[in-house]
Structures are given as structure tokens and as C-alpha cells.
């Protein structure tokens, strides 16, 4: 598969003016300004293949939005380069953006005062979309999101969910190969979230659109992302599909076994992390033994009353990834 996006060693830092406290600090600021350089992203490297759905996650302020903004041409990296469809974003901005769609959950590209259809019409002209493919796209979008009934509604009267639907359609009108979604589900109710996820899956399946989304929603991560890129403090921490990351961060499971008495048997491929009366917790590495085999072996030594398996939740995994091991 060809690479749709290539991120080559990019870094970005911001210049922030330090402000003093209170009236004294403010007065001081009038005379002298202290500038601080804050690195937002440093030495990021990764490629994204055509047709992938990549979840771009990390704690607040990790540099997710900065990276997405660099990929979509809004910010220029301080160093390094970004290629989309083989073209450098910095030097070929217009060609690159003709092929990408962008939705920011907290900001709309729709005209606030006018009916939704007017914003679409403007985009039709901006991206030079001919009438037939425009109408086809609206039809497709109507099947997925039911957009037609919203077209005559002024954007300022829309609910957040409706507005996000409008923004999704607006980003897809010119059939881009890549779609960036920056926290698209933020603040959405359950049915709007469902609609959004359905949208992402369907356009990915039907059109092969490459999708990069940032999110804090575990549901998005579990249901949508074939691959996760976790960044923290501007650096890449994990990269892979959900199972791989789980295996990497928590390569073990815990088997809880209840016996009929307090004589607890051992097994050479796992360690006992706790015993409490006739209940024992065994930790084993998934690569070394399966749970079924372990239960079978233990059952041969002592009669087992009950078993359960404890696994690190995705919640825990993500938290561990954020906080660092």
C-alpha cells in the first residue's frame, strides 16, 4: 500500500510572551517583554497509508492539534517536512488542500448567518466541483447523515450535532482523499456520536478515504481506529493497532481462581501475585501461555470452583501510555 501521508522529522515550537503577576507585573511588561520558546512537537516521524483510519490521541496539550494543523497546512513546522499524496504541504499548499478535508469540532467553517445550502454552494465554487458530482455527493451524504432536511436551515439555528453534520458534509464535498477530524465528537449527544461514527466507517469503506482523527472518546478509539498514534509532550509514545498497544503496555493478564480449600497450587509459567483464603491471583504473560491451558494445568493439580480473568481496560492502557511507564 502506498503512503498517503509522510511525516518526516517535524518539530514545532511556539513563542510565548511571559506575563508578570498583578499590576506590577503588567507595568513591567510594558517596558520589557520576556519571550519563552515552548516546544509543542519535537522530532515526529510516521507514515499513514491510504485507507487507514488513524486515531491520534494524547493528553491535553500533547501537541495533537498542532500536528493536525501542520498536516492540514494551517501551521508550518519549524523544521522537517510533511508530504501528503507525495506533495509537500508547505510548498504546494493549494494543491494539497484541494485533496484534504478538515473538520474542527470546536469551530465551524459554515456561514453563521445563512442557510446551510449557501455554505455548500460557496464550497462548490471554491473547489470547482461540477454540478453532477456535487449532487451525487449530497445524495450520498443524505443517505449517511440525512443532510437534505438541514439544507434550508440557517446555521445559527442549528444544534451542535446538526452543525457538525453540516461541517462533515462541507469537508467531503470535493471528495478529498484525506479527512482530518479534530475532536469531532466533543460535546455531541449519543445519537450524533453514532451518526458521526457511521459516517467515518462508511466513507472509509465506500470511498477509501484516509481518516485521521483526534479524540478523547474511548468509544471512538475502540469502534473506529484501525491504528492508534499516541503522543505525549510532543513526542510519539505508541504507534500500532489497539491490540498491539495493549500487548505492548500490558502484556499480561491476571487469572483469578477460587479453590475449595486454602491449598493453592503453583505453575512454572506464571506468578502468584496474591492469595486470599481459597482465592489466588496468577499473573501470566499472554505470549507464554493461554488462559485455557493454565486453567487446565491448575485444574489437574486441584479442583477449581470458579475462575475469572482480569485484563487492563482500554482506559487503563491509555492512561498508562499518557503517564508513561
Amino acid at each position: 500500500m502506498e503512503n498517503m501521508i509522510e511525516i518526516k522529522n517535524i518539530s514545532k515550537s511556539y513563542h510565548v510572551v511571559k506575563k508578570g503577576e498583578g499590576i506590577k507585573g503588567a507595568l513591567k511588561g510594558l517596558v520589557k517583554k520576556e519571550v519563552k520558546v515552548i516546544p509543542a512537537v519535537s522530532n515526529l516521524n510516521f507514515n499513514i497509508k491510504k485507507g487507514e483510519i488513524v486515531g491520534f490521541i494524547g493528553p491535553n496539550g500533547a501537541g495533537k492539534s498542532t500536528t493536525i494543523k501542520m498536516m492540514s497546512g494551517i501551521l508550518t513546522p519549524s523544521s522537517g517536512e510533511i508530504l501528503i499524496g507525495g506533495k509537500n504541504v508547505k510548498t504546494h499548499r493549494k494543491e494539497v488542500v484541494q485533496n484534504i478535508g478538515v473538520v474542527f469540532g470546536q469551530r465551524s467553517q459554515l456561514n453563521w448567518d445563512l442557510r446551510l445550502g449557501e455554505s455548500f454552494e460557496l464550497l462548490r465554487h471554491i473547489y470547482r466541483i461540477d454540478k453532477t458530482s456535487f449532487d451525487e455527493m449530497i445524495d450520498t451524504m443524505d443517505e449517511i447523515l440525512g443532510i437534505k432536511e438541514l439544507q434550508d436551515k440557517p446555521v445559527r439555528q442549528m444544534s451542535l450535532g446538526q452543525r457538525v453534520k453540516g461541517d462533515l458534509v462541507a469537508a467531503m464535498l470535493h471528495s478529498p482523499d484525506v479527512l482530518f477530524l479534530d475532536e469531532p465528537t466533543i460535546g455531541l449527544d449519543i445519537s450524533s456520536k453514532y451518526a458521526l461514527r457511521k459516517f467515518v466507517k462508511e466513507i472509509n469503506e465506500k470511498r477509501g478515504t484516509t481518516i485521521i482523527l483526534t479524540t478523547h472518546d474511548l468509544g471512538d478509539i475502540e469502534q473506529l481506529c484501525s491504528r492508534l498514534i499516541i503522543i505525549n509532550n510532543g513526542k510519539l509514545v505508541e504507534d500500532g493497532n489497539l491490540e498491539e498497544i495493549v500487548d505492548d503496555i500490558a502484556p499480561y493478564k491476571t487469572l483469578v481462581v477460587e479453590y475449595y480449600d486454602e491449598q493453592i497450587p503453583q505453575h512454572e509459567k506464571c506468578e502468584i501475585i496474591s492469595t486470599e483464603g481459597n482465592v489466588a491471583k496468577y499473573r501470566f504473560f499472554k505470549k507464554e501461555i493461554t488462559a485455557a491451558k493454565l486453567i487446565e494445568d491448575l485444574g489437574k493439580q486441584k479442583a477449581i470452583k470458579d475462575v475469572s480473568i482480569e485484563e487492563a481496560s482500554i482506559d487503563d492502557i491509555i492512561r498508562i501510555a499518557y503517564e508513561g511507564r
Binding site: 494543523k69 492540514s72 494551517i74 499548499r93 488542500v97 484541494q98 484534504i100 467553517q109 473547489y127
Partner: peptide, 12 residues
């Protein structure tokens, strides 16, 4: 307000 974001992601 970051209004240039919108302009920068359009091919004009």
C-alpha cells in the same frame, strides 16, 4: 480568533 485556519485549508 484563529480565523485564518479556514482560509489556509482552502485552495485559494
Amino acid at each position: 480568533e484563529g480565523e485564518f485556519d479556514r482560509f489556509l485549508t482552502r485552495p485559494l
